[in-house]
């Protein structure tokens, strides 16, 4: 099972970090038998079976591929624990938009998890777009992840992390 890194602290400030986390969720394929406990399903399977699962006493997450629109989940978000956004290749940047929309437009407060080709070089971008959990594909440790996410002392644009932007620092 891939290891899970979770952000700790508030990414809008300077003190956030990352740590290994116990991953209670199981990724369930479309043809897999449904296990006990907390699950992450594809969007299609969620749309077919989600109602029943959500009424069980388990937590449910949905995996959204880059060509699927997170808006499709708008109605269900309050009941979801995890939205896992897939990076089939690190170069496929659509999940960054999906993450920002989840946080900034749809008000999702659950976990936004990066899955797939997830590399520490992208940590800063991911944290800024609102991801707070990561299944690294490159063996990154929480220490490496934290360091990468803190690499730049300043940022130039507002994003989901609500970090203070260069022009706000200047205005002080």
């Amino acid at each position: 099972m891939p290891k899970l890194i979770k952000l700790t602290g508030d990414p809008s400030g300077k003190d956030f970090g990352a740590e290994w986390a116990e991953d209670g969720f199981v990724h369930v394929g479309d043809d897999d038998a449904l296990p006990e406990g907390d699950v992450i399903l594809s969007l299609a399977r969620f749309q077919a079976e989600g109602e029943i699962l959500l009424s069980n006493s388990r937590r449910v997450g949905v995996r959204v591929e880059p060509d699927q629109e997170v808006e499709a989940l708008a109605y269900d978000l309050p009941r979801l624990s995890v939205v896992a956004l897939a990076f089939p290749k690190y170069r496929d940047g659509r999940a960054y938009t999906s993450a920002r929309l989840l946080r900034e437009r749809l008000g999702f407060t659950g976990q936004v998890r990066a899955v797939g080709d997830v590399l520490q070089e992208q940590a800063g971008f991911m944290v800024r777009c609102g991801f707070d959990a990561f299944e690294p594909a490159d063996g990154a440790t929480p220490e490496a992840w934290t360091k990468a996410a803190h690499r730049f002392r300043h940022v130039y644009q507002r994003a989901a992390d609500h970090r203070r932007v260069a022009f706000e620092e200047r205005a002080v």
Binding site: R91, Y96, Y156
Partner: peptide, 13 residues
């Protein structure tokens, strides 16, 4: 220039 510099959403277009 400033806005686009390491833009977190638009660096993997």
């Amino acid at each position: 220039r400033q806005w686009s510099t390491l833009h977190p959403e638009f660096s993997f277009l």
